[in-house]
């Protein structure tokens, strides 16, 4: 026993170092699964408030660009105004509509922190549980898909951006309808890869890629980007398509969070439908 204590004391520096590393690894692994990552991240109050102040200052520099984008969006929405349409003078009929039920609702939020240079990039927005944001909601702006919510505090939420190892949302080719997961290879923040597209799919450079109805984060048809190039790797049965993202992840300002009212129902149903063993 004395020898053991003497040994421990002699090498105490190494043991303390190993202990510290163990704590770090434990945090890293806990951060990987969803429940534990609340511990340290930028939805933490101190960090989020500093970032909110920073974003407030930086906002002025992108006002011109942001105004232009909002103006374009407004124009498109105005084109859908009811007053734009000529109403034929027909007999008015009132229909109690039970065919349509609201599935998607939107929450607006401002980006207070974002990165594009890391291998795994996160975005922080200034909407949290108080505004109705919960985990695993999709996030986009008028230009395209951005990510989905990972952690939520009272007034902030962190988002796993499209540029993240764990982001693999199903997207499809708008023209052809083939779908596959969209992943990021970590090379260029403007490009993602759409994988697992079967070789019989009709692909053309410049085709549009949109979100598919398979993902429960996004409604069908949210813009993702356009096809830049595609290739069939050796010994693979699938195409890998290089997609140019339509959303500029370096210039994020205002975004929308998508609330899917049927997600809970869909998820619980899918959970009960276990594969037959």
């Amino acid at each position: 026993m004395r020898n053991l204590l003497a040994f421990l004391y002699k090498h105490h520096f190494i043991f303390v170092f190993l202990l510290a590393q163990l704590i770090c690894f434990w945090m890293m692994i806990r951060g990987k699964n969803y429940q534990g990552s609340q511990l340290i991240n930028s939805s933490n109050a101190v960090a989020a408030n500093i970032y909110a102040a920073e974003a407030n200052t930086k906002e002025y520099f992108s006002l011109k660009h942001e105004n232009l984008r909002l103006a374009i969006e407004n124009k498109e929405l105005r084109n859908h105004l009811k007053s734009n349409y000529f109403a034929y003078p027909t007999r008015e009929v009132r229909i109690n509509d039970t065919v349509y039920k609201l599935q998607y609702e939107f929450i607006d939020a401002k980006v207070v922190n974002a990165s594009v240079n890391n291998r795994n990039n996160y975005i922080t927005i200034n909407a949290g549980s108080a505004q109705g944001v919960t985990r695993e909601m999709g996030v986009y702006n008028s230009l395209g898909m951005i990510g989905f919510v990972r952690d939520v505090s009272e007034n902030f939420a962190t988002i796993i951006s499209v540029l993240h190892k764990d982001f693999a949302v199903n997207c499809k080719l708008k023209r052809d309808g083939s779908y596959g997961p969209l992943i990021w290879d970590g090379k260029d923040y403007q490009y993602c890869l759409l994988t697992d597209i079967p070789t019989h799919a009709k692909i053309k450079n410049g085709d549009t890629v949109v979100s598919s109805s398979l993902s429960s984060y996004f409604p069908e048809g949210i813009m993702v980007g356009t096809i830049d190039s595609y290739e069939r790797r050796q010994n693979e049965q699938f195409y890998t398509i290089k997609v140019k993202l339509s959303a500029d992840l370096k210039k994020l300002n205002y975004v929308y969070v998508i609330k899917n009212n049927f997600k809970k129902e869909k998820d619980s149903l899918e959970k009960t439908t276990q594969p037959i063993k």
Partner: peptide, 9 residues
């Protein structure tokens, strides 16, 4: 880590 949302890294 607190600022970069990367626990432990």
């Amino acid at each position: 880590d607190l600022f970069y949302s990367t626990p432990g890294l």
